[in-house]
Design a protein around this nucleic acid. Structure first.
Lengths: 232, 232
DNA sequence: TTCAATTTATATCATGTGATATATTTTACG
DNA sequence: CGTAAAATATATCACATGATATAAATTGAA
């Protein structure tokens, strides 16, 4: 037991990372922690994940988590924001384009083509891209728990894609405004992708596939395309 | 610090519950622990769940978990078996009947009808029955982690339903043996149900529904039925 | 009612966990 | 090069956790 200062008197202030103006190296460390946290939270959940595990995965010392993110909870929310950012980088241009074209009348055939575009982009994001396993798992847990990040994810991740899918379905079947039935169909359609994302281990085992490599991915896209063609 | 026996000399043997011949009250306690554990594991996962939380939820003392299930891990596996048992009670008769009827030639219309039966039974199991939230969450985590219960769940929970769905789809499209395309369709179709089970909070918010009560459930079933009708 | 088997309850242990204090090192700018 | 700010590292703390020891209470059959 070493004699030290009384806990009431701090010799140094509490340090947290600056909002802006940090070092290049610090920014890299921050990103490294985020990547590690996505992985660990995705595997073990908010509660099951330990700060030591995340720190080790990131190759940093434990107090870095508090320094850059304020602690475990802050890091969790930062992960949600990171997911939303990555999703945005992948989907935002396409969704904006489709949204703009929805402002004018659109033929059923055209709506079908655009819907396929959207769904295939989601396939590329969720299924073709193995990194998505990491954040899909995180998202999944947040759905189940409706934890602190649910609102962020609902607004920026789920609602946009479902909205557009529902509207395209409405156009395909000739509706003026998007009906509840089209919305339900949109939810079912987007959720069917989870066969190969969330439930991927089941699908691979069931189909006796080693992975979802190019030829198999093409079959998945073909099957999804067929679903779109069948919408009437 | 109370003086007691040296740790090398035990005054009592280690107690675990008998394989058979326990008391009625003990059996009730065992079931209560299982129910509590399904809930807590489903929310917090294997790692995040604590034995104290489960014990409190069940209204038992902490050592009861080790007494009845050998500890946390044993309890987790018992939960998986419990889920399989519940699923079996709900689906086995129907699946057996369909499987038997598949032994003979079956018209496309007949296959459609049976497929709807299967999917609606899954809806009743997963969506209409709110208790399913508890074990769906558990299952979900096991998929993501491929933990100790994955094999049990794959064999007894997932594969039977997907198998039958794939075979019925094959009959609908006139195949002699079930093609990979039919299997992929089966996986997509069954996974689409997750819109209202796993992703239920999203669906409810998106549709501005308070719940999936009777009239809304009918719409969901109708939408799923329409998906089946569209298979060609 | 008795008694062995079963079950339950309190206490304790060794280890794990999020957070924090504080010294030291590194970075970037003038 | 000097220096303030930023970042990193070691050590420590209070509390949490799975498991276990063991005493006491309950159950059910004779």
């Amino acid at each position: 037991m070493r004699s030290g200062p009384s806990r009431a008197v701090k010799l140094q202030p509490v340090r947290t990372a600056p909002a802006a103006g940090g070092t290049r190296k610090g920014e890299e460390t921050r990103q490294r922690i985020l990547d590690a946290a996505l992985k660990v939270f995705g595997t073990a959940g908010l509660k099951g994940a330990t700060t030591r595990q995340i720190a080790e995965e990131a190759g940093v010392a434990l107090p870095a988590l508090a320094y850059y993110f304020g602690g475990k909870d802050g890091l969790y929310l930062a992960c949600a924001q990171e997911i939303v950012d990555r999703y945005g980088r992948h989907m935002l241009a396409l969704l904006s384009g489709v949204r703009a074209s929805l402002k004018a009348p659109m033929s059923a055939a055209s709506a079908r083509a655009r819907l396929k575009e959207v769904l295939w982009a989601l396939v590329d994001l969720q299924i073709a891209n193995r990194e998505a396993d990491i954040w899909m798992s995180f998202v999944l847990r947040e759905i189940a728990e409706q934890g602190p990040a649910f609102d962020i994810l609902f607004k920026h991740l789920w609602a946009p894609g479902v909205d557009i899918t529902a509207e395209l379905i409405g156009r395909i079947v000739g509706e003026r405004s998007t009906s509840p039935a089209a919305k339900i169909q949109a939810l079912l359609l987007i959720s069917s992708l989870s066969a190969f994302s969330i439930a991927r281990p089941i699908a691979l085992r069931y189909l006796d596939w080693p992975d979802t490599g190019d030829a198999r991915l093409a079959r998945i896209k073909s099957a999804i395309g067929a679903q779109v063609e069948r919408i009437a």
